[in-house]
Design a protein around this nucleic acid. Structure first.
Lengths: 208, 208
DNA sequence: CTCCCTATGTGATAAATGTTACAGATTGTA
DNA sequence: TACAATCTGTAACATTTATCACATAGGGAG
C-alpha cells in the first residue's frame, strides 16, 4: 500500500505514511457501488488511491444533483467535516470506476491534525479546494440557464476523465442536472449545431 | 475588547484570548459598507463581535446572489480558506447592521491552529457549519422552484434577525435571488393569500 | 399641500423549461 | 434472426420565469 499511497499523496510525511499504514484500512469497491448514502453515519475519512467517485446531493423525492468528482490523491471533504462531529452524511457517493480507498478512522483524522503538519495542510487544502468548487457549482445554478449549465457540466466531466469522449447518456446528464431528458437532448443538439460537440450513442465527443 | 470577545466566543481559551488581544485589530464598519469585494486579496480572518454582514456570490455582469449571514460569534469561513493560501476573495461582504470586527492577520490564523486547541476547533467548526449551509443553499436552487426558494430565503432572514418583521423590499429580494421584482411581487402575493405572511411597505411580516 | 422618488400591482407577451406521447434506432441476447 | 431493452428524436402542450409597459400608492422634502 505504501508505494501507491506515497505516489498519490506526495505531500504526506514519512511519519504520516507510517501512521496510515499501521492504522488505516484499505478497501475496494466496484463501479456502480454506492459507498455512502445521505443520512448514513460517517465513520471514516476516505482517501482515494485509484478509480473515480461521483458525489451527489439528494433531495427527499430521490432526485440527485451532481456536485463533484473524487479522484486519486483526493479526499472527501464532507467525510472529514462530518467525521469531526460524528455526523450523518449530507451526500451520496457513487463509484464510477473501480476504486481503492484508504479508510481513516475519524478519531485519527482529528488526532493527526495536531501531530502531522502535512496532514493538517492536506486537510485544510481539501476544505479550501472543495469549498471553491462548490461555490462554482452555486454560480452555475444561480446565474446560468440550462444551456450554460450543461456546458459547465460537460467540461467538468472532461476534466475528470481527461479525455474528449464522455460516456454519458442524455438521461444520465438530465438526472445529474435535475432536469428532463428531452431538455438535454434539445440542448445537446443546439451545441452540436454550434460545433461544440458531436453526439454518438452513449458518447458525447467534445470538439472545443 | 476582551469582555465582548469572551462573551461572544465563549469556547476560546484564555491563552487564545490574550493572543487575540495582543495581535489582532478591532475595526468598525457602518451599515451599507461593502467590506470585501470579489477579487480583492484577503489579508485577515474576520471575527464578528457585533452587527450583521451578508455574504454574496457575484457574477461577471454584477448580479449578486445571497449566500449567508455572518453574525456575532461567527467567523468568515471563506476568509479563513483564502487566507491560508493568500488567495483572492471569492465573495462580496456587505454590512447590514453596523459591525465591530476582529481582524486576525492571516499568518496567525494558521499559526494558532497548532497552538490553540480552541482555535483549531472553532475553525474546523466554522468550516463544517458553513459547508453545510452552502449545501442547503445548493439544495434550494438545484431542487426547488422560485416559490419555495423564496420561502427558504425568508425563513433564513427571520432566523438571522430573530424577528418576524423583515425589512426587505421586493427589489432587494429579487436581486439576492437573482430574479426579477415582478416575479417576487407575484409570489409574495400568493404566499399572502396562503396566509404565510402579510405585506407592508418595505416590510414583510411572517405569520408562520 | 405638492412634487418627487421609491415601492408595489398587474396585464400582455416572450422565452425557457417541464411533461406527455410516441416513433425510430441501436445494441445485446436468446 | 427475432425480441427486448435502452437510447435518442421530436411534436404538442403546460407551466414557470423573464421582460416590458404602465398604473397606483405612500412617504419625505420643500
Amino acid at each position: 500500500m505504501n508505494d501507491i499511497l506515497k505516489k498519490k499523496f506526495p505531500s504526506f510525511s514519512n511519519a504520516l505514511l507510517i501512521d496510515i499504514n499501521t492504522n488505516a484500512l484499505q478497501q475496494s469497491f466496484a463501479a456502480g457501488d454506492v459507498i455512502m448514502r445521505t443520512g448514513q453515519y460517517i465513520k471514516n475519512t476516505v482517501l482515494v488511491l485509484s478509480g473515480k467517485i461521483k458525489i451527489y446531493r439528494e433531495d427527499e423525492e430521490g432526485s440527485e444533483f451532481f456536485m463533484y468528482y473524487l479522484q486519486p490523491g483526493q479526499a472527501c471533504a464532507i467525510s472529514m467535516i462530518c467525521a469531526t462531529k460524528n455526523q450523518k452524511s449530507q451526500i451520496m457517493a457513487k463509484v464510477v470506476e473501480d476504486v481503492e480507498l484508504i479508510m481513516v478512522p475519524l478519531q485519527l483524522m482529528d488526532k493527526w491534525m495536531m501531530q502531522h503538519r502535512s496532514w493538517y495542510e492536506f486537510v485544510i487544502d481539501t476544505y479550501r479546494s472543495r469549498f471553491e468548487e462548490v461555490l462554482d457549482v452555486i454560480d452555475s445554478i444561480a446565474f446560468r440557464a440550462m444551456d450554460e449549465r450543461l456546458e459547465f457540466y460537460l467540461k467538468r466531466h472532461r476534466d475528470a476523465c481527461d479525455c474528449d469522449d464522455l460516456k454519458l447518456s442524455h438521461q444520465e446528464i438530465a438526472t445529474e442536472l435535475n432536469t428532463s431528458r428531452e431538455v438535454i437532448s434539445r440542448l445537446l443538439k443546439k451545441l452540436e449545431q454550434r460545433g461544440v460537440l458531436k453526439m454518438h450513442r452513449n458518447n458525447i465527443e467534445l470538439l472545443k
